[in-house]
Amino acid sequence: MTDSKPWYLSRTIWAAIVTIVTAMLGLLGVPLDGFDEAGFVDALLQAVAAVAGVVALMGRLYAQSRIG
């Protein structure tokens, strides 16, 4: 495993975050019947990737120096 990626694109990190949040919501008494954790993680990861792409594009458009 030599390739690296940002932490926010890691499926494992997002699955752990969703697991922690759903456990906390369960402790607080929020009903979670029928909640699809895997589907939610997939949707969340796609949203994060889309936002990261927009941020990268905006960063390049508003950059003050050229790419060398």
Rank of each mutant, 00 (worst) to 15 (best):
D36W: 07
P6Q: 07
V54D: 00
K5V: 09
I20T: 14
I67R: 14
A47V: 00
S10N: 12
V51P: 01
G53R: 05
S65C: 06
P6W: 04
G26Y: 02
P31K: 05
A47Q: 07
Q64S: 13
W14M: 07
L45R: 00
A49C: 08
L57Q: 00
L57N: 00
I17P: 04
V21P: 08
I20A: 07
A49T: 11
G68C: 03
L57C: 00
I67H: 05
L45F: 02
G59Q: 03
I13K: 08
A16M: 11
A47R: 05
L9P: 00
G68V: 02
E37I: 15
A52S: 13
M58T: 09
A38D: 06
T2R: 14
Y62C: 14
G26Q: 03
M58A: 15
L25E: 10
G59L: 01
A23F: 13
S65M: 08
L44W: 11
L61P: 00
T12W: 06
M58W: 06
P31I: 08
A56V: 01
S65L: 09
A43M: 14
A63M: 00
P6E: 11
W7V: 14
M1W: 09
K5C: 03
D33E: 05
A49D: 03
L44N: 10
G29K: 06
S4R: 13
V30F: 11
S65I: 10
G29Y: 03
L61F: 11
W7E: 14
A56Q: 09
V30S: 05
G53D: 09
L28I: 15
V41M: 04
I17L: 12
Q64Y: 09
G59P: 01
A15I: 02
V54N: 03
G34I: 05
P31W: 08
L25S: 04
W14T: 06
Q46E: 13
L28P: 09
G68P: 05
D3F: 08
